[in-house]
Amino acid sequence: MGKVIVFCCDAAYYGLNMVSKLIELPEDVEVVRVPCLGRVEFEAVVRALLDSANVVLAGCHENNCKNIDGSRLAKMRVELLRRMLEFVGMDADRVKHLEISTYEGLKLAEFLNEFAAR
């Protein structure tokens, strides 16, 4: 079981913050706050994967991104990366993309607990 790195866009990060008193995140989870998920360089994701960490990208719903395109781009990039990882024989489930709004912090926290326990 490795580390989990979570890239959160501003909205999802705020959501996670709101529920921080209700539910605790596992120790292995490290949250990285980014302005928008469209800004996450996929090189960073690849780097994390090869340093044996698992990666979660949590951001706005597709048509709810304040930067219009960010969420859509992230979704595509992750999907393409997952297929490539599968192609070279790596476990694609080590990268996840989640659509999380500000009010879905609980959902994200629960998912992270589950994901880290795997």
Binding site: E41, F42, E43, V46, R47, L50, L81, M84, L85, V88
Partner: peptide
């Protein structure tokens, strides 16, 4: 900084390099 692909020529760095190269040409 940040160093996404390390200079060492090892299997994992090579995978990172080739994934990134192919991805940039998507």
């Amino acid at each position: 900084e940040p160093e996404f692909v390390r200079r060492a020529v090892r299997l994992d760095e090579n995978i990172a390099y080739h994934l990134i190269r192919a991805y940039h040409l998507a």
